[in-house]
């Protein structure tokens, strides 16, 4: 009796398993848009050139319909006393650090989404709301987003922010590489306003060769490292600096795409549905043993 029921249970679970595997294959066909174009664009941020005027912060808010305030108020240097992070109200911020080699001037670092070549957020998004576009930008579809905030956890640079204080329709907020502006042929707002062109917008491959050229021509000014060339598998935004990037609060995500981490966790949990099936099988087994023991106990009585 019990033998046949176990066979039945295994049969059903195998059927369910096969069904779900089939489902997961079909959903893989509707995987998020994740294009890695040859001609994808990028931005080279030269932190040795940046003067910390914070006009990019203002321009970014203007371009994204966030309350920006008066541009003159951005001349305030006191904000540099505290380290700031991009938030739902400011998609990019500039922080100031002490001087590096070859200069007595402080170093200013603009922080925003790095627009990874292998974005972990895109991979982590369970509804495919995030996508890596052909022009290199990582953008998200507010209509699809369900607010699970997996992207926030997945991001190796801790960039996506969430409108926590919005009760209705809160959104994930992050730099979108001015997707709408660049589509119209305009430059990203921050690149356009930068008075010293610390931000250079162009094809990523060209930017890398420009960066290498700058390091070669002026080895006293730069350290021999392009942050973002290889970090997290490569990013669209890349940085030049005159001191170790760890000192400038840049994370060290390693050269492998962060996707590997988040996907291995997610895929590890659900890989071919074996772990869940085996878990249920184990639980089922325990249940069956317990039940069997109970009934044999009763029989003994």
């Amino acid at each position: 009796m019990s033998g046949s029921s176990r066979r039945d249970f295994l049969k059903t679970s195998a059927l369910i398993g096969a069904g779900i595997t089939g489902l997961s294959i079909s959903s893989a066909k509707a995987a998020p848009k994740n294009i890695l174009s040859e001609n994808r664009m990028g931005v080279l941020v030269d932190t040795t050139v940046c003067i910390g005027c914070r006009q990019c912060e203002w321009a970014c808010k203007e371009a994204h319909d966030l309350p920006a305030g008066n541009i003159a108020s951005y001349e305030n240097r006191e904000v540099f006393y505290n380290m700031r992070r991009p938030s739902e109200n400011a998609l990019t911020v500039v922080n100031q650090y002490s001087a590096g080699k070859g200069s007595d001037l402080p170093v200013d670092v603009k922080v925003q989404c790095m627009h990874c070549d292998h974005p972990a957020c895109v991979s982590a998004c369970i509804v495919g709301a995030l996508s890596k576009e052909e022009n290199g930008s990582v953008i998200w579809d507010t209509d699809k987003c369900i607010g699970c905030r997996y992207c926030m956890v997945a991001c190796p640079f801790q960039i996506p922010a969430f409108q926590y204080n919005k009760a209705l329709d809160p959104k994930i907020m992050k730099c979108d590489f001015c997707f709408e502006r660049t589509k119209e042929g305009k430059l990203p707002a921050c690149v356009e306003i930068c008075p010293v062109e610390a931000l250079t917008y162009g094809p990523r491959t060209e930017l890398i060769s420009i960066a290498k050229d700058r390091i070669k021509r002026d080895p006293d000014r730069y350290i021999d490292h392009i942050y973002g060339e290889k970090e997290a598998g490569g990013t669209a935004w890349m940085y030049l600096g005159n001191q170790e990037f760890a000192k400038l609060d840049f994370p060290e995500p390693g050269d492998k795409p962060a996707v590997g981490v988040s996907e291995s966790i997610q895929h590890g949990i659900f890989a071919y549905f074996v772990p869940p099936v085996s878990l249920y099988a184990l639980l089922g087994g325990i249940m069956w043993i317990n039940k069997h023991r109970k009934s044999s106990d009763e029989e003994e009585k």
């Binding site: 050139v49 690149v191 356009e192 008075p195 010293v196 062109e197 250079t200 917008y201 162009g202 930017l207």
Partner: peptide, 18 residues
């Protein structure tokens, strides 16, 4: 113009400011 062919050389505005 900042939108230009040779992005290796800073544009005029940036050159002045730098």
């Amino acid at each position: 113009s900042r939108k230009r062919g040779d992005i290796g050389i800073p544009d005029l505005k940036a050159a002045y400011h730098r």
